[in-house]
């Protein structure tokens, strides 16, 4: 069994004169839930379209589930489920009919499997409703049902939660987690909702302007990260506290609305607390702000812009 589900190497794509993908390379490991992040216009959707076969691959190398594109596309796609942004099924057909017709293009589908997939995404009550009457959240979920209908080993999703309300997003997250654990499916999804990706994914690929800015396991990416701490204290101690903080190395601070914001490694916090108390500063709270993908993301993508 191969280790990488998707291997993209030196992928290039231009629309007219605009270069959208610039030697993009990344790997998606098997059995992971991987996130694909990037600011608007970074080339996420284009990359996914190339992976799904909607935009022909002209320059670069893509290997999915051990089959290299474009030659092995049909063979690879039989084991891949794809959920496009805003899935559009036939409006006049019911959910079951749509899944039957579109699903039969992969392999023969049974009615039980269709109902099972529909139940898995929580659309049991709407199974015989016409697609035209679905809300956008339901459409998105039917898209996922279509993606998993043929029990793929890899599921690729483009913005699965776009246009959904918060409750819908939570549901979608649960659905994806269930698919990952119950059907052992590797999931690769693009999203611009970073907190969601952080909660769901164990691996991320961050791209910016057609290049890979960073890729790796979420834990690894966050571990090298400087954490933000907030020290709350009465205003009159501010200047005194700053004097104390100046004695520490590898520390940055700024004034926050209700105290000082520090950026430092977490192991420095006990020492700082001790020093502040020793200087008779009445510290009312020392609050860690959990390291988030968002900060890493902004740092990575804005660094690129600086260059």
């Amino acid at each position: 069994m191969q280790e990488t589900a998707i291997k993209v190497n030196q992928l290039n794509k231009s629309f007219g004169r605009k270069k959208v993908l610039n030697d993009l390379s990344f790997n998606v490991p098997m059995n992971s839930i991987s996130g694909f992040l990037g600011p608007n216009g970074a080339g996420k959707t284009t990359t996914l379209r190339i992976l799904m076969g909607l935009v022909p691959l002209l320059q670069g190398e893509i290997v999915m589930l051990g089959e290299s594109l474009p030659g092995g596309r049909s063979k690879a796609v039989e084991q891949i489920g794809a959920v496009v942004e805003n899935p559009t099924f036939i409006e006049t057909m019911t959910a079951v009919e749509n899944l039957y017709w579109f699903g039969s293009l992969y392999k023969p589908v049974t009615n039980e499997r269709i109902l099972e997939a529909i139940a898995l995404v929580g659309l049991k009550d709407a199974a015989n409703q016409r697609f035209g009457t679905f809300s956008s959240g339901m459409k998105q979920r039917l898209g996922v049902a279509f993606g998993i209908l043929h029990k793929p080993r890899l599921l690729i999703l483009d913005e699965p939660t776009s246009g959904m309300d918060p409750a819908g997003r939570v549901q979608m997250r649960e659905i994806l987690q269930r698919i990952h654990s119950e059907e052992k499916t590797t999931i690769f999804l693009s999203s611009h909702l970073l907190d969601e990706v952080q909660r769901l994914c164990d691996y991320v690929v961050i791209i910016d302007r057609g290049r890979t800015a960073r890729e790796g396991y979420v834990g690894e990416i966050l571990s090298g990260h400087q954490e933000t701490w907030e020290i709350r204290m009465p205003d009159e101690f501010f200047s005194k506290a700053i004097e104390v903080l100046k004695t520490f190395e590898g520390l940055q601070w700024s004034e926050g609305p209700r105290g000082l914001m520090l950026t430092m490694k977490s192991e420095m916090s006990p020492g700082i607390n001790q020093a502040l108390v020793a200087a008779e500063i009445k510290v009312s709270a020392l609050i860690p702000h959990e390291a988030s993908l968002e900060e890493t993301f902004i740092r990575l993508t804005s660094e690129e812009k600086g260059n």
Binding site: L54, S74, V77, V84, T88, I90, F102
Partner: peptide
């Protein structure tokens, strides 16, 4: 324009 085509083309049909 309706997007049916993309639904067809993401399946293994050539």
């Amino acid at each position: 324009s309706r997007g049916y085509m993309k639904m067809l083309l993401i399946t293994p049909v050539q």
